[in-house]
């Protein structure tokens, strides 16, 4: 199998604290890979390292075998790696329409066009329509993002990452904080992600992890602890020990 995403000896220190320690992660093309671990294990740090928000102290990040360690965050997205955020990072004053339009324009190379009126390119418009419908954001596309229900904002988080048309998608706790009645939409959106997109999922919700993932890595104290198929990981006594008292779902 070919690897979509790989890290080699990734390490990140904050002062004296090692947040990520010698992580060599391999994510296969088309995989549904989950990264789990107790609170404070350093999962979000890894996402930040993968996407260029943070620079590693040591180690490399490879996307489709290409070294992207020195690329800035926005350049990595252009190479095909996009993410969602654990805590919504949206543009409060913009509408979902504008938000998605922005990401699609950017991907289609029209983002720095300063002379054409936004939304006058038909390819952009068609793609925006497709994404708004796919994520069922059409009915709120014209509202300010900051006043949308939380579940809709969560959907917009994912839709925005998809609008970048990534080959590798990093989902940072997509269902976190979503009320029960809006959960279904999120789960449906996650399971309907295109098959050719490689997904790395960070999640606390074990139901979601085990229904979704075909491969699981467990992170403890910044280091990779166990990796394997879901049933292997679920049976592993060491994982149980780590999670004992941490998370009742395992």
């Amino acid at each position: 199998m070919t690897l979509a995403l790989e890290t080699v000896g990734l390490e990140r220190r904050f002062g004296g604290i090692v947040a990520t320690s010698n992580v060599s992660l391999k994510v296969e093309k088309g995989a549904r890979h989950a990264l789990i671990g107790p609170n404070g294990a350093g999962k979000t740090t890894i996402i930040n390292l993968l996407t260029g928000v943070l620079r590693p102290t040591a180690g490399r990040v490879l996307l489709d075998g290409e070294d992207i360690t020195s690329l800035k965050a926005h350049a990595r997205v252009k190479r095909g790696i996009a993410r969602t955020f654990q805590i919504n990072q949206l543009f409060g004053d913009l509408t979902p329409l504008e938000t998605i339009g922005l990401a699609v324009s950017e991907r289609m190379g029209a983002g720095s066009d300063f002379w054409r009126i936004a939304g006058s390119k038909s390819e952009v418009v068609d793609e925006v329509v497709r994404i708004l419908n796919q994520f069922r954001l059409a009915d709120v596309m014209d509202e300010r993002t900051s006043i949308l229900p939380y579940g809709k904002q969560r959907l917009l988080e994912i839709a925005l990452a998809i609008a970048c048309k990534p080959r590798v998608l990093l989902l940072d706790e997509p269902a976190a904080g979503v009320p029960e009645h809006e959960r279904h939409d999120i789960l449906a959106a996650v399971s309907a992600l295109p098959k050719d997109v490689t997904v790395l999922l960070i999640e606390h919700d074990m139901d979601l992890v085990f229904s979704f993932a075909d491969r699981i890595s467990v992170l403890v104290n910044g280091a990779l602890f166990v990796e394997g198929k879901p049933d292997e990981v679920a049976r592993d006594p060491r994982v149980k020990a780590v999670y004992l008292g941490e998370d009742a779902d395992v």
């Binding site: 926005h74 955020f85 339009g101 936004a118």
Partner: peptide, 21 residues
């Protein structure tokens, strides 16, 4: 223009703006 729209995005949330390239 799309450029102008992207400025508002950058002002509102530079972290996310860079995450959509």
């Amino acid at each position: 223009s799309p450029f102008g729209l992207s400025l508002r995005a950058v002002k509102a949330n530079p972290l996310r703006a860079s995450a959509i390239s």
